Amino acid sequence: MAGVLDSVNQRTQLVGQNRLELLLFKLQGRQRFGINVFKVREVLQCPKLTSLPKRNPYIRGVAHIRGQTISVIDLSMATGGKPVEDTSTCFIVISEYNRSVQGFLVSSVERIININWESILPPPKGAGRYSYLTAVTEVDKELVEILDVEKILHEIMPIDAQVSDAVMQANPVEKDYSTKKIYIADDSSVARNQVKRALEGFGIDLQLAINGKDALNKLLAEAEETGEVTDKVALLISDIEMPEMDGYTLTAEIKNNPKLKNLKVILHTSLSGVFNHAMVEKVGADDFIAKFNPDELAGAVQKWLNV
Rank of each mutant, 00 (worst) to 15 (best):
E155V: 05
M245E: 09
R32D: 08
D286W: 00
M1Y: 08
H277V: 09
E145G: 00
G103R: 01
D74H: 03
K232N: 14
A278P: 00
V40Q: 01
E281G: 14
V283P: 03
D74Q: 06
A127D: 14
I182N: 08
E244Y: 02
T251C: 14
Q28V: 08
Q17T: 14
I254R: 05
M242F: 07
V4A: 04
A166F: 07
Y97F: 15
I113R: 01
R41D: 15
A166P: 00
A185E: 08
G201I: 02
V4M: 11
N98Q: 15
L153T: 10
L260N: 08
N114F: 05
F38L: 15
R192D: 05
P172H: 03
A285C: 03
G128N: 08
L44Y: 07
M1T: 13
P172M: 09
V307R: 12
T12R: 10
Y177T: 02
W117D: 07
A185R: 09
R197I: 04
A166K: 12
I240K: 06
R32C: 05
S108K: 11
F275K: 05
H268G: 06
A127Q: 14
D165F: 09
L14D: 13
A278H: 09
G128H: 04
K213C: 02
S164T: 13
E142W: 01
Q302T: 08
V274L: 12
G61T: 12
L297D: 06
G227C: 05
T269I: 08
I92D: 04
D86H: 10
V15R: 11
M245W: 09
V307M: 11
D176W: 00
K282I: 04
F275M: 15
S88E: 14
K54H: 15
T137K: 01
A2Q: 14
S131L: 10
C46N: 10
V106L: 03
K213E: 12
G16Y: 10
K180Q: 13
P158M: 10
I156F: 07
K54C: 09
A166M: 10
D205F: 05
N262L: 06
L49A: 07
K141D: 14
